[in-house]
């Protein structure tokens, strides 16, 4: 076990290093000289003079060799300083912290919706394997997976906010404003979980002790719900952790459609405003969160599921 954890830690640290290099280099791929871009932003589109650019480069350390710049950048990040936004007075760290909770809240609510849909559907699908209900729920899951979130969001808005007038169209702060975004985010994820749960259920249903339980005459339903579901959910729940990336992908669109603050919205706004320090900071933070979650899930998965051996863990 510890050998495995150590192995994964080393690889995670290596990946984090690579991620930081790529993120750092991101700004160098932007068209034009970064110094000129920044100065132009600050001067509202005016072309800065050559002296101004040179002075700015000197002040910002942009004349140093790139590895030196990278080390400086990493050192300040390790102190929690992700830099300064071009446009506003806020630090990137502050902006990210401010926008963390709304996205987290959306993700939690979306996950709740996903489980509410996916658990019954997955169970029904597995129990009725090959039957009409199975086909139906598989198709429903795929439909959920295939519907673009931005269309689904508008559709829900049209039905529940306009035609039925039971929920607010958009905004942030109250519980009822969270319902439609959560459903939009949840349906796509429900599809993924349904499929996972179905195959996991089928696997467990096939196992020895379930067959024994059945033969002992326990009522089918109890067998299914009590034993199978509990066992089938273990891998599913751990794998849900891996859907972190999906959650963020979805949050971008949903925060735009429903006018919510959050990390996704911040990212889009910064990309459009060419506020590269924010883009850089966000990409880095998201990637780090992603790597750390994957690492934890990996370890947890092996911890809860003794069937998986620790030797020769796949790369």
């Amino acid at each position: 076990m510890w050998k495995f954890v150590l192995q994964r830690s080393v690889s995670a640290v290596f990946v984090l290093f690579g991620v930081s290099v790529l993120t750092f280099l991101l700004v160098f791929f932007t068209p034009g000289d970064p110094a000129e871009t920044i100065l132009r932003q600050q001067m509202g589109g005016q072309t800065p003079s050559a002296e101004a650019i040179e002075q700015f480069r000197a002040n910002q350390g942009l004349n140093d060799p790139i590895p030196v710049q990278y080390v400086d950048w990493v050192l300040s990040i390790l102190q929690g300083d992700l830099g300064q936004s071009y446009h506003s007075d806020s630090s990137v760290t502050q902006l990210i912290v401010d926008n963390l909770w709304p996205t987290f809240e959306l993700a939690l609510a979306g996950m709740a919706v996903a489980l509410l849909i996916a658990v019954p559907t997955g169970v029904i699908s597995a129990v009725h394997k090959g039957g009409r209900l199975d086909y139906g729920s598989q198709l429903a899951a795929l439909l959920g997976l295939s519907m673009p979130n931005f269309w689904l969001g508008y559709l829900l808005m049209l039905i529940f906010a306009i035609n039925l007038s039971v929920l607010p169209t958009s905004g942030y702060g109250t519980i009822d404003q969270l319902v439609l975004p959560a459903i939009t985010l949840g349906t796509g994820m429900a599809a993924i979980i349904t499929r996972l749960l179905r195959s996991s259920m089928l696997e467990v249903l096939d196992e020895e002790y379930i067959r024994t339980a059945r033969s002992k005459g326990l009522r089918e339903r109890i067998v299914v719900y009590k034993h199978t579901l509990r066992n089938a959910l273990i891998p599913v729940i751990t794998i849900i952790g891996l859907q972190f990336g999906y959650l963020l992908n979805g949050a971008v669109i949903i925060e735009i459609v429903f006018q919510r603050p959050g990390l996704g919205r911040l990212l889009i706004d910064s990309i459009f405003a060419r506020d590269y320090p924010i883009v850089q900071g966000l990409v880095l933070v998201i990637a780090v969160l992603f790597v750390v979650t994957n690492f934890l899930v990996d370890v947890a998965y092996r911890y809860v599921d003794p069937r998986i051996s620790f030797e020769g863990a796949p790369k």
Partner: peptide, 16 residues
Amino acid sequence: FVDILLAFPGLLLALV
């Protein structure tokens, strides 16, 4: 290198 690229949620990276 593949691992590093996979550390970014795919579509977010595409977006950037």
